[in-house]
Design a protein around this nucleic acid. Structure first.
Lengths: 336, 336
DNA sequence: GTGATATGCGCAAACGTTTGTCATATCAAA
DNA sequence: TTTGATATGACAAACGTTTGCGCATATCAC
């Protein structure tokens, strides 16, 4: 187990004081050009690598950002993580990724752990179970930058990055109206989440704008899984629906499966639009029109918000709305 | 910006020495039960949270593991990350995730960064560009545990976790043989990677075992993308193939698209099997038979290997082979 | 040549924890 | 009463870096 060289070693070999070596390497403070060169040469010669832990302790802050998500391997979140990483890593920050498995208990544990590790900031999407994240109430007062995304509590301190769910759902519903569907139902999620509330509102707005009735009886909540989609497609047909806007692609997939099993043609007889633009949306047949979440952009926005706050270039409290984009494919397109 | 309490604060309030408080909180060393209680009470009262940075500096090692992958948001890798996290986080370790974008330059940068941060270990899958990861040659001698997975260099120190690519490809090819396909081609990857070499070998073994000719002219390397699959399907048909084993699902997807465009029935006229079992494999029509990589298991195995090495319970040098599983669906199944 | 300013670098303290050693107290055995 | 063992907790050094302070020396304007 060889020992790694420190600035003290460099200083000793050059008959300098460690502080001078530190100043030379970091570029903070006054050091002669000549000695700076000497230090750099010696650092390379010894294979010196700065000890970030010591540096962080002294500076009282690390170059680490905690990322808290329900599940790393859900496409949406892995896209957000990837986007955030691609901004933060080149900026000199490390991303510590933690998953909550949608459990409040885990969320509390990982957040406490991140605080112990003196992270410079946290980028958080809350677990489904979380109703009141009390731990986060005073992180800002400890100098930890908080950025929430997707599932966000707007009354917490810090910045939020959210999708324009209202506009996305509105565009999807409008697209179906324009394609001549007359009775459009909705498969939504649970209303404990701001996201699904907003999607319902966007859907409703599109209907009302077109002078179409908003009918509670064809709103199916808690219905974003594949099997719920399958089941509720049957229910929707009983209620004479000829289209469904789904708040998730897996629900839309269930809808399409039911249609295939019952020889209902999509999009001719029935229209369906999903949300999230999962990988499979373009691969299935017919391809699924879906509202893209721009997950990667959300990660990039969240990371940039963190950086801006850290550098004092941005107000701490802010709401960033990432647009959603309707990706038009076949599943609700019968205009031609 | 309120200041966080330290063990010194606790010590002062209780007229104890910081070292006693430390011992009480960590449970290392002898402390009276009575004072231990006092310390815990006071710690809660002040809202004390251990400063891991200081602790790490003193102990010379952190509780952080670096994870280096080409792309976080590729399903395979996000599954591995998720598996590793679910083992490491409960064990008290943090996972720092870095992506290399398949560039050697980025790989070098993130690894150096991890070393600066005194990580306890690294779990690495190399970038496509990496031929010789010299940086990793002596990490072990610095006490950093190295675990490689998937794309691994076996001559490096440390443990490797790899798929049984040979067996997976063998099973896939055998499945096609059993379904009566007579001239089975192969869409593979680049041979700079051990993975694709092994898959080709497994494919070849199945053929030869069945007394079928191995024909170089129907081996298409560097062909794991969707469009390469599409293109090489045309080539394979010219060479009178009636089936293809693809080293990636996206290539298989391209194959199926070409078939649909040219009214070739799958699996009746042509068989295809992919590798990776991407999400879409079961969702497309016909569904795609594919070799499952067990990515999550690989992450779990890698994390457990790290833990075992850290605790000295396992030899540093070891090779762990994770089985692959053939998921039989429709795309090469014409026995009934 | 004088005083003012700038430059280069050493000194020492500090960040918050851990840990080896040492002092004191307690208690049992001799 | 002495001796030795055991338990408790104090003390101080250490991890490697950063940074305010101050002291020389160099540079400059007048």
């Amino acid at each position: 187990m060889q020992i790694r060289p420190t600035i003290v070693d460099i200083a000793r070999e050059l008959n300098l004081h460690p502080s001078t070596v530190s100043r030379a390497l970091t570029g903070q403070g006054r050091v002669g050009e000549a000695t700076k060169d000497l230090v750099f040469k010696k650092a390379v010669e010894l294979g010196y690598n700065c000890n970030q832990v010591a540096s962080s302790l002294r500076k009282g802050i690390t170059d680490t950002v905690g990322m808290v998500v329900p599940l790393i391997n859900r496409l949406f979140f892995s896209n957000v993580i990837s986007g955030a990483e691609s901004v933060l890593n080149p900026a000199g920050y490390n991303l510590v990724v933690c998953q909550t498995h949608d459990r409040k208990e885990d969320e509390t544990r990982v957040i406490r752990n991140l605080l112990r590790n003196q992270v410079a900031g946290m980028i958080v999407s809350h677990s489904l179970e979380t109703i009141n994240p009390e731990l986060l109430q005073n992180v800002s007062s400890n100098g930890v930058v908080l950025v929430q995304f997707d599932r966000a509590f707007e009354d917490l301190p810090g910045t939020c990055v959210v999708n324009d769910n209202f506009a996305g759902a509105y565009a999807a519903t409008k697209h179906m109206i324009e394609n001549g569907y007359k009775r459009i139902g909705h498969l939504g999620g649970e209303f404990t989440s701001n996201i699904y509330e907003e999607r319902l509102a966007g859907y409703r707005h599109a209907l009302e704008e077109a002078g179409m009735a908003f009918d509670e009886s064809i709103i199916f909540t808690n219905s974003i899984s594949r099997d719920k989609g399958f089941y509720n497609m049957a229910m929707a047909l009983e209620k004479k629906c000829d289209a469904l806007y789904c708040a998730g692609d897996y629900a839309a997939l269930g809808v399409m499966e039911y249609a295939r099993h019952n020889n209902i043609r999509i999009p001719e007889d029935f229209g369906v639009v999903g949300t999230a633009n999962e990988t499979f949306a373009e691969l299935i047949n017919p391809s699924l029109t879906s509202v893209e979440q721009n997950a990667r952009d959300m990660g990039i926005e969240a990371a940039e918000a963190f950086l801006a706050i850290r550098e004092g270039k941005s107000p701490v409290k802010r709401k960033i709305v990432v647009p959603m984009k309707l990706i038009i494919r076949e599943s609700a397109n019968r205009n031609r």
